[in-house]
Nucleic acid binder design. Structure first.
Lengths: 134, 134
DNA sequence: GTGTATGCAAAGCCTTTGCAGCATG
DNA sequence: CATGCTGCAAAGGCTTTGCATACAC
């Protein structure tokens, strides 16, 4: 029987992860596709999506979705905060200067003019807890 | 000259806002369309989208986008926190019991099993600040 | 009347998926 | 050499848009 979590080490996956980690910015899938294409001219957008999905579900990559629904990816999976530009959608890292991110408003903002923040908790609702127990 | 923010009071807009505010849940545009259709059978999905966009840009409604890119709307535009189910995408309100939401982990979670949170700052990046000044 | 808003349908966009061939372990 | 992965292209799903008509002011 085969291991359902088995994954192969493909050149495509390696290059995608390498290029994403090298970038300080947080590209969209299409941005990354353009970048990776410089090294692997034949790689398809579909492959980029498939690998970003695998990597983000594996925790090696972070997927960031904005209010507009646009997805961006972050090769730094360590816990850190982001600031997003409301005008152009650009996303940057924020240096974590204390354990309480909400109090960081005067910390280094990477040149950003701060407007606010979005906070959302993640969990499992009562209904889905029941389904899982069955 | 006309006021760029001028808006007409249409029945459609009123009913969309009314129904959204009446709901405790946070429906998708399509969910809301189904609900509003009970009162206005001929209303189109496009009109629902157009009005939700107007209302959210006007601050009367909150637009919430999940990691998967799914958009949900909240008729309560007052500052409060949300918890989202990773299994089914359902979104509920969280009672705000202190000024520091990150410390609320033991507060009333509406029956949810808490897994974590997403925090993102919103601002204007240096590049866009320069564009605005010009 | 003037110009915004609507309904309808088509178009857009980003993302996912089916498939046959490829290449990894 | 079994089967996971790829490239390609088509399909999907949500959202936006163009257009003629309706209606708010």
């Amino acid at each position: 029987m085969s291991n359902p979590n088995f994954q192969r080490n493909t050149v495509q996956r390696q290059v995608i992860l390498e290029e994403l980690c090298r970038l300080k910015s947080h590209p969209t899938a299409s941005d990354l596709h353009e970048i990776v294409r410089k090294r692997l001219p034949k790689i398809s957008l579909g492959t980029v999506y498939r690998n970003l999905d695998l990597l983000s579900r594996g925790g090696q990559v972070l997927k960031l979705v904005s209010e507009s629904g646009e997805a961006r990816y972050d090769g730094n999976s360590e816990n850190h905060y982001h600031i997003r530009c409301v005008e152009c959608g650009r996303v940057d890292d924020l240096s974590e200067t204390s354990d309480d991110p909400l109090e960081n408003k005067c910390a280094d903002l990477n040149g950003y003019e701060l407007l606010g923040y979005r906070l959302e908790y993640i969990g499992i609702c009562p209904g889905c807890q029941n389904i899982k127990k069955k």
